[in-house]
Design a binder for these strands. Sequence first.
DNA 1: GGCAGATAGTTGCATATGAAACCATCCCGG
DNA 2: CCGGGATGGTTTCATATGCAACTATCTGCC
Lengths: 160, 160
Amino acid sequence: MSSGEEHPRVAQQGPGRLDLNQFLPYRLNRLADRISDELERMYAQRYDLNVAQWRVLAWLSHCDDLTAKKVCTYTNMDKARVSRAVQALVDRGLVTRTPSARDQRVHDLHLTPEGAALLSRLIPEAQDWEAELVATLSAGEYRDLLNAMGKLERQLERIG
Amino acid sequence: MSSGEEHPRVAQQGPGRLDLNQFLPYRLNRLADRISDELERMYAQRYDLNVAQWRVLAWLSHCDDLTAKKVCTYTNMDKARVSRAVQALVDRGLVTRTPSARDQRVHDLHLTPEGAALLSRLIPEAQDWEAELVATLSAGEYRDLLNAMGKLERQLERIG
DNA sequence: GGCAGATAGTTGCATATGAAACCATCCCGG
DNA sequence: CCGGGATGGTTTCATATGCAACTATCTGCC
């Protein structure tokens, strides 16, 4: 760790050169990846959940009457990925999937008591960890950050 | 697209509930993923590059005398992934990999003229796209955003 | 000099993922 | 009604990835 340079020697700027540290997509990705890695370790080690499963559970805690399709749109995950995550959660008895009375194609997803119990342990841990992460930001900085991210997401919809 | 609700009905908050839209790791990941998806489409369609390959190229444009190890530490990518990305770039004649005179274990990476030419077309496109993305942010908001992200990264090092 | 451990990089293997094909159900126009 | 799409969801298949084992080289210590 102390052997190599922590920061690269930067070549002169200019056309055909890209300063990645000023390139938002790169910075955002690096940060998100590192955060994701940390949380993933937490879910995986203690609860044997992968990211997709965690997201499904989190949405189930967040809003009632969920379906796989909704999870796809909310989380931007592929429907195959969601399907497999839900399957794993059903197999573990954390979630129920029942065909909707209205539309037999749709399956309503719900937490089982076991799933709710697991979440009631996991969520506080995740929130504590997040609190520690953002401890260096003031309340205003935190608000501005979420705000800027919201603007970027809306701009993405416009561009894409 | 217009059929489903864009925003989920949110259940009551409380213990055991998690509002994902206020949960920074989730928000950050979703934003980074969406941006990444867009850029990936751009690299892939027009230049037949995947993300790992693009990152290696970008670092090569950014600083001279690079090695696979440095790419690993800078980008947080697995060394196998970097190795395969470099291999692909060498096969395509975009990058050279020569054993270092000092240490036969390390390989110096350099752009070929072809690689530099490709970057000189790709980088402006990426920058234009980024400019469009952040067009909704004021200069101050943009600076604050990068600043907050820097703080989070430093805090991550402390925590992890 | 020479062995023990570290380090750069590659390769083999198991798994996670996305795209596309597929199935079942629903909806709509005639 | 009923036939052609659309839609929710699953499965199949190819690929990308991470981990671990491995090779080759280097470094330090005796």
